[in-house]
């Protein structure tokens, strides 16, 4: 097969995976709270910084060759920490807008995103500079004559596993049933002795941790991370969730793959495509919403009088 084509396909799958991980968070939270958590991208972007920081600490403590083990610990730390930041964001800010009009929550979360970016920029050592980010999985996978770089394989397989896990959690476990119950109707859920606040906290943790994984993959794939990467990643993740149909998990996956596909095709075919990538991606978003106003898999709600 044409090796360039293979490269494009791999790139598409990797970007699709990253966008999927971000989009799932938007979808989960919207399904539950009917709130767009606009700082989701920025919360997720905390993870690469935590990972970098803890990697430095670990290397400092153990010395040069901490290897794979150290990287795994750093990643796990970053994911858990980001999940907790997500819970904290809900406790401190988002929770207070549960009963307000949607626009207020939206503006509040946008301000929260700015605050998070500025915190990273101001308090992480030399936070305004881009930081080199190591590849999480170096090396190649050889099979039958050809060979594949390891990192895309890891990213794609992990994403598939995580999506399956989240789906299993939502649909086959008691916790998932509770989450869906609260999403349906928090007041009735309360009567069924479900504590909505716990469910909210858990969902925020889940969404932010999954987003953290996406941001880690993004940083690792790009090889670099900067405090404001979360804005664009968040916008694309949000778009993916919306064109797929907010609140639907398979929609989020479809939307993410569609946006990544447009980006890859544009990059491969249009001259100077790299700079017009976003133009085409967001034109697709506009077009999709004009044709199917509630997304690919979204349910059209008939308003009753």
């Amino acid at each position: 097969m044409d090796s360039l084509l293979v490269q494009h396909i791999i790139n598409w799958a990797v970007m699709g995976s990253i966008y999927t991980l971000i989009a799932i968070g938007f979808s989960l939270l919207f399904g539950l709270l009917n709130v767009i958590h606009f700082s989701h991208g920025d919360v997720s972007m905390i993870a690469p910084f935590v990972a970098l920081g803890s990697l430095q600490l670990i290397f400092g403590a153990i010395g040069g060759d901490a290897g794979l083990f150290a990287i795994l610990i750093a990643l796990a730390l970053a994911i858990v920490a980001t999940g907790l930041v997500g819970v904290g964001a809900d406790r401190l800010v988002i929770r207070r807008f549960r009963k307000s009009p949607a626009m207020m929550a939206l503006v509040a979360t946008v301000a929260l995103g700015t605050a998070i970016r500025e915190l990273i920029r101001g308090f992480y050592p030399q936070g305004s500079n881009p930081k080199a980010f190591p590849t999480i999985a170096d090396g190649f996978l050889s099979f039958g004559g050809g060979r594949l770089p390891l990192q895309p394989v890891v990213i794609i397989l992990t994403t598939i596993a995580v999506v399956a896990l989240v789906w299993f959690l939502l649909h086959k476990t008691p916790t998932g049933t509770r989450i869906r119950a609260v999403a349906e109707d928090p007041d009735t859920a309360l009567l069924m002795s479900i504590r909505p606040d716990r469910i909210f906290a858990f969902t925020f943790f889940l969404a932010s941790a999954v987003g953290a994984l996406g941001a880690l993959f993004f940083a690792s794939h790009a090889g670099v991370v900067r405090f404001d990467f979360g804005v664009q990643l968040g916008l694309i993740g949000f778009s993916a969730a919306v064109i797929g149909g907010l609140g639907s998990m398979s929609g989020a996956v479809l939307g993410a793959l569609a946006i990544a596909a447009v980006e890859s095709v544009v990059q491969a075919t249009v001259p100077d495509g790299a700079s017009y990538r976003l133009v085409f991606a967001f034109l697709l978003v506009i077009l999709m919403l004009c044709l199917r106003p509630s997304g690919i898999l979204g349910k059209t709600v008939q308003e009753k009088v």
Binding site: A102, L106, V242, V279, F282, V285
Partner: peptide, 15 residues
């Protein structure tokens, strides 16, 4: 409308 319309305007702005 609502979030979907918000996204259309965001997309327009970015384009």
């Amino acid at each position: 409308k609502d979030s979907y319309l918000a996204l259309v305007t965001i997309a327009f702005g970015i384009v």
